[in-house]
């Protein structure tokens, strides 16, 4: 049943993921320390997005869930990004 398909994350993989996340945090802190203007914002948001993707797929186990849940999560995240983009289009071109 469930247990046959159920994937159990190993401690080792969890530690690896944490190390990657901490490394990304360090990079983010260091890069934003250098003031590059709008580039800083873009880089910080990009790194945050990568971190979020890692947490969702690994810690939240989405990588090993069924297709329906994967599609649901991707769909909702796409909707969220669209809401932001459309609001900004409205704001800048009104």
């Amino acid at each position: 049943m469930r247990d046959e398909k159920n994937h159990i994350s190993t401690y080792r993989s969890l530690v690896t993921v944490l190390v990657i996340l901490l490394a990304l945090t360090t990079i983010s802190v260091l890069i934003t320390g250098i003031h590059l203007g709008p580039v800083t914002v873009a880089v910080a948001l990009l790194i945050a997005s990568v971190k979020v993707a890692i947490v969702i797929t690994q810690f939240m186990h989405l990588k090993f869930e069924n297709l329906f849940l994967k599609l649901a999560v991707s769909g909702v995240l796409t909707l969220f990004v669209l809401v932001i983009v459309i609001t900004f289009i409205d704001y800048f071109f009104r």
Partner: peptide, 16 residues
């Protein structure tokens, strides 16, 4: 941030 990242790992570890 470090506290929360580590705690996220420990809770995933608790599930494992």
């Amino acid at each position: 941030t470090v506290f929360l990242l580590v705690s996220s790992m420990t809770v995933a570890g608790a599930l494992t």
